[in-house]
Every structure is written in structure tokens, then in C-alpha cells.
């Protein structure tokens, strides 16, 4: 899923300070699971903002709403009848949701309430780690199910580099060396001979490098 993290409260206050009527808009998908932008976080953030402005002697209209998804026309339509009641939307969705909301409501400022971080997994309660950079051409079948693009600091396709020490990356002794993990798993799979297959130069045009991407599936279009 998409992992997001809270923005510093001061940054959020600075963003919304010019607006009288604010809708704090949560999303019930990824950001709910990673506890950054779901209903619970909407409630907390709205309360913090109300308290802040009250302390400043200002009364502002700060409402709460959480949609099923902000990356889907259908759910975003649910706020069409109320959008004009607000001077700004503070979206706690990922960057996709923020943009999709902004595209839909052209004349309402939509501000990001979280930092969208990466595609990752729930490692343990309160800790999420990156697993995918959406390169558009999955190599996991060749790398024992461990992604060197998202998990190696140098995205080395034929690793490990010389900085791998005790299974950890040269950038930080708390970061696993992706290639150590790949080798451990190749061993577990009894496929160590695969290590010597040279990974060819990668076509990065399916990644960010190729410009904004689009998936079109005629088979599911209506």
C-alpha cells in the first residue's frame, strides 16, 4: 500500500492560516491502514487545529469528513454539494488523493495534510518499510522475490556493492543489504547458481524516467 506520514503540525497551521472555513478530508484506504490520514487522524487533526485557533482567539469552521477513497471519482462526488461551504480542503489522503480532489474542485484550494512516502508494508505496529518503487517492469522473479530497486540504496541490479557489511547497507547499519537478502533467499531456494546471471541494463522508460505513466485496459473499460 501507499505509506504516508504526518506533516509537522506547524507546517499544517501555516498552510491553512489564511482560510476561515476548512474541511479536513480523510481517506479510508492506505492512509487509514498506516494511521496517517483516516477517520481517527482526521478527528485528531481537526481538534488540534480548533484548539490552536481558539487559543489565538479565532473561531474557525473546521469540519471533518472521511471518504471511502480520494482516488476515485465516485467517492469524491460525495462532497460536491458541500464543497462551496469551505475556503480550503486539507486532504489527509496520499498525493494521489490530494491531486484528484484538486482536479475535481477547481476553485477550492486543496492542501496536503500528510507526506506521501513510499509503497510499503506494515512491518510491525507503527513501522512501515519500503518494498516497491513501481518501476513498471517487475524483476522480482529474477531476484528471489526481493527488490534491489527499492531496497538497495544504489539500486544495484548486480550486487552487492562493496559497502555491504554484516548484512547491512553502507548508508546505515540498521538498513538491510538488499543483496544479502537476495543471496540468503537464493540459498534457501536452492538457486545460488542464479546469482551469476548478469542482469541486463534496465529499461527505465517504464519508470519515472519515461514521464507520467498511464495504464489502459480495454478489457475492463465500459
Amino acid at each position: 500500500m501507499i505509506i504516508a506520514d504526518k506533516k509537522p503540525i506547524q507546517e499544517i497551521i501555516d498552510q491553512v492560516s489564511n482560510y476561515e472555513r476548512i474541511l479536513v478530508l480523510g481517506c479510508n484506504e492506505c492512509v487509514t491502514v498506516c494511521e496517517a490520514g483516516g477517520k481517527k487522524e482526521v478527528e485528531i487533526l481537526a481538534s488540534v487545529l480548533r484548539m490552536h485557533f481558539l487559543k489565538e482567539g479565532q473561531e474557525r469552521k473546521i469540519d471533518e469528513r472521511t471518504l471511502e477513497r480520494q482516488c476515485d471519482h465516485e467517492y469524491l462526488e460525495e462532497i460536491r454539494d458541500v464543497i462551496d461551504q469551505y475556503d480550503a480542503v486539507l486532504s489527509l489522503a496520499c498525493g494521489v488523493g490530494v491531486q484528484f480532489t484538486a482536479e475535481k474542485y477547481l476553485t477550492t484550494p486543496v492542501l496536503p495534510g500528510v507526506n506521501t512516502c513510499f509503497l510499503g508494508a506494515n512491518e510491525q505496529r507503527g513501522m512501515w518499510t519500503e518494498r516497491c518503487q513501481a518501476c513498471g517492469e517487475c524483476v522480482l522473479g529474477k531476484t528471489a522475490g526481493i527488490c534491489p530497486i527499492s531496497r538497495c540504496a544504489k539500486r544495484v541490479m548486480n550486487g552487492p556493492c562493496g559497502g555491504s557489511t554484516n548484512g547491512k547497507c553502507e548508508i546505515n547499519s540498521e538498513v538491510d543489504c538488499a543483496w544479502q537478502l537476495i543471496i540468503d533467499r537464493l540459498k534457501a531456494l536452492g538457486r545460488m547458481e542464479d546469482y551469476e546471471i548478469v542482469a541486463p541494463i534496465k529499461d527505465w522508460s517504464t519508470e519515472r524516467a519515461g514521464g507520467p505513466r498511464k495504464v489502459v485496459r480495454e478489457d475492463v473499460q465500459v
Partner: peptide, 27 residues
């Protein structure tokens, strides 16, 4: 491949790694 940029004076910079060292040999 080169040391990671976090060791140097431009820790906030991008790294490229379009190729890796083996692919540079091939190139």
C-alpha cells in the same frame, strides 16, 4: 558504483545509478 552520496557534501542530492558497475563494464 561509487560511495553513496550520504557520505559526502551533497547528502540531499539525487543519485543516478542508471547502470551499475557491471553494466558499465559491458557498456
Amino acid at each position: 558504483s561509487g560511495d553513496h552520496q550520504s557520505f559526502g557534501d551533497c547528502a540531499q542530492g539525487q543519485n543516478v545509478h542508471d547502470l551499475d558497475s557491471m553494466q558499465l563494464i559491458q557498456t
